[in-house]
Simulated assay, not measured.
Amino acid sequence: MEGAIKTVVMQYLSSAKGKESMGGKNFQKLVQSQLGNILGDTDSASAVKEMIKGLDDNQDGKVSFQEYMTLMGYLANSLSEQKSSGAAQEAK
């Protein structure tokens, strides 16, 4: 699990290129390269813009580390629910 946490942090830092937050193009590249199998429509710039709007608590048009972690939490929760419902279906 430690390795997974390090990977999440390092992917953000690499994509943000030393800045405190990530612009739309860098965020889209991160989403496409690292989350394309989990998130649909990552090739669509408009879909990624909508995702940024949903994450952008301070309305600066960028994704901060905290906002990125909100996405990670949402994705982890969604995967957990999928696995739980799948396990419940198998038990029937």
Rank of each mutant, 00 (worst) to 15 (best):
M1E: 08
M1H: 02
K6P: 06
K6I: 12
K6D: 09
K6C: 10
T7A: 14
V9P: 07
M10P: 02
M10T: 14
Y12I: 15
S15V: 08
A16R: 01
A16V: 08
A16I: 06
K17E: 05
G18P: 10
M22A: 05
M22C: 07
G23Y: 06
G24S: 00
K25G: 01
N26P: 01
N26C: 05
N26D: 00
F27S: 07
K29L: 09
L30N: 02
V31G: 05
Q32G: 03
S33Q: 04
S33N: 02
L35N: 01
G36Y: 00
G36W: 00
G36H: 01
G36I: 08
I38Y: 02
G40P: 13
D41Y: 05
D43I: 03
S46V: 03
A47R: 00
V48I: 08
K49S: 00
E50Y: 00
E50I: 00
I52A: 06
I52E: 05
L55S: 01
N58C: 09
Q59C: 12
D60E: 11
G61I: 14
G61S: 13
K62L: 10
V63T: 10
S64K: 07
Q66M: 13
Q66D: 11
T70L: 09
M72A: 09
M72V: 13
G73S: 09
G73T: 06
L75S: 11
A76K: 09
S80T: 05
E81R: 15
E81S: 14
E81P: 11
K83S: 04
S84I: 11
S84T: 09
S85A: 15
G86R: 14
A87V: 12
A88K: 09
A88R: 02
A88Y: 05
Q89L: 15
Q89M: 14
A91M: 10
